[in-house]
Amino acid sequence: MGAEHSKRKDLKNISDAEQTKFVETFLKATNNKEKMTKEQFLVTYPVIGEFAVHCYYRLVKLEPSGLLRAKTFLRIIDGGLGHFETLAPALITCFGDTKEQIMRNVVKIFCEANKFTREDQVRLYEYFNEENTKPVDEMEHFFSTCPLFPHAAQFIFQRLLDRPGEAKMPVLSEKSQLMGNVDQLVLNCHLPFDRRKEWTLLYASVKHGHSFSQLVKAINGQGPVFIVMRSMRGRRFGFFASEGFLAGPLYRGTAECFLFQLAPKIATYSATGRTDNYAYLNYQQQQHPNGIGIGGHSNVWPFFIHEDFGGGLCQKNSSAFEPCWLAEEEEFKIKTLEAWRPGDKPAKSFEEQLLEASSPERSIIDKDPEARAVLEMAGKSFSSEAYREAAPMLDEK
Rank of each mutant, 00 (worst) to 15 (best):
K397T: 11
A52W: 01
V106K: 09
F239M: 09
P289D: 06
F321T: 03
E389D: 14
G234C: 06
T93E: 13
S298M: 09
I365T: 11
F237A: 07
V225F: 03
C94R: 02
S384Y: 00
V186W: 00
E361D: 14
R159A: 01
L178C: 11
M232E: 13
V23C: 14
Y45T: 05
F110V: 02
R118Y: 04
I334Y: 08
L42K: 15
L11S: 08
I292T: 11
T37V: 05
D366N: 13
F258V: 07
L67Q: 07
G96E: 01
R362I: 02
P150E: 04
T72Q: 02
D183K: 08
P46G: 13
A386W: 03
A373M: 01
K33L: 06
F237C: 13
N299C: 07
L59D: 09
M232D: 15
S211E: 08
F193A: 15
E50A: 15
Q158C: 12
H190D: 07
D308A: 10
E174C: 09
N282C: 15
L91S: 06
T275G: 12
F303G: 01
R104G: 06
L62Y: 11
E370S: 08
R252S: 10
R233V: 08
E166P: 03
V136T: 10
N290T: 10
H190L: 00
Q353H: 09
D366K: 12
G273K: 11
Q184P: 03
G312H: 09
L355I: 11
F116D: 09
D395L: 09
V186T: 04
S358D: 03
L201F: 01
F240V: 09
Q177R: 12
C146G: 14
H151G: 04
L160T: 07
R104P: 02
F149H: 10
F155P: 14
F237K: 07
L161I: 13
Y269P: 13
S176L: 00
E166F: 00
P392V: 00
S176A: 02
I305V: 10
C314Y: 04
F212P: 15
N105Q: 12
G82D: 10
L215Q: 02
T336Q: 15
A241M: 11
N31S: 08
C189K: 08
T86Y: 05
F143D: 06
R362W: 02
C94V: 06
G244H: 10
E330C: 07
Q158A: 05
